[in-house]
Amino acid sequence: MSVSTPTTDDLADWYTDLTWTRAALYALVLLGVVFFLAPLETGLMTAFKSNAAVIRTLPFLPPFGDGFTLDNAQFAWNHLSGPLLNSLVMSIPATLFTVLFASMAAYGLTMVDWRGQLAVLSLFLVGVFVPYQAVLVPLARFWNNILPLGKMVAPYVAALPYFTENHAVLVPLIITHVAYGIPIITVLFRSYMQTLPTSLVESAMIDGASVTKIYYRIIVPLCKPMFAVVFIYQFTQIYNEFLFSLTLIGNASSSAATVTLVLPSLGASVSGMDFGVRMSASLLAAIPTLIIYVAFAEQFAKGLATEA
């Protein structure tokens, strides 16, 4: 039948199109996967190679035979376990406070019906983009000379188990991270809160709820998805941050040094090209954020998308 012929042709065309362009697409996707994973893959392989194997073998091949060693990993662990803990001690409370303050700020700025609102919001927004260098000199002077909070709390910190007086420097560091983390998280929260129907807040107002009650009974529960996003985002940011640690802790050999502070100097201190150690240490330092990232990949991607 003549009617059925064109249908078959169309289907055949569609089928060839599918095979060829699709194959090319998947090849490109695969190329991308290789590109993005290669540095991590060679890093991982090298992390478990002996010095001899690092030089002798191809960087992307897994270690084998006597080329395999856990010495580097052991070395990295010995040098980084303390800093890892310091990083967590700094990042977790800093993240919690940032998120708390920022969610409050965003709530306040979303529900106010006031002409100055845009001006205040703009100040938060500009704060997102200020390079830390622009406040670094005053920041160092402030915590060293004007308000030596580290020295002030040192005795109390030293009284805690595990911690030493040196760790007191983490207190001003946490406050610094909170202060500079507020703008971006506020902006993230606000963009989310704006998508909530205003009638919910209005209804609660008419129901007689106070501003505070509306915050913790209505807004916080409704923003749960955003809380997940910003916790992950901000923890990663603070854990990965280097410049504040460098200026406020300063010395990589301090017992309060964070992972990011120790890692570059660890690389530099190891003479020659002991990449086995460097890679072990790098991947060890990357573990907390990688775990969070892989476990919460969806929220992470969402956070990135809303940031824009």
Binding site: S199, L200, I206, D207, S210, I218, P221, L222
Partner: peptide, 18 residues
């Protein structure tokens, strides 16, 4: 609003979803 002793039904109902 909370001091007016009024109750309101909204077009989108404004039920608290959680």
């Amino acid at each position: 609003p909370q001091n007016r002793d009024v109750a309101m039904v909204f077009q989108d109902y404004a039920l608290y979803p959680h």
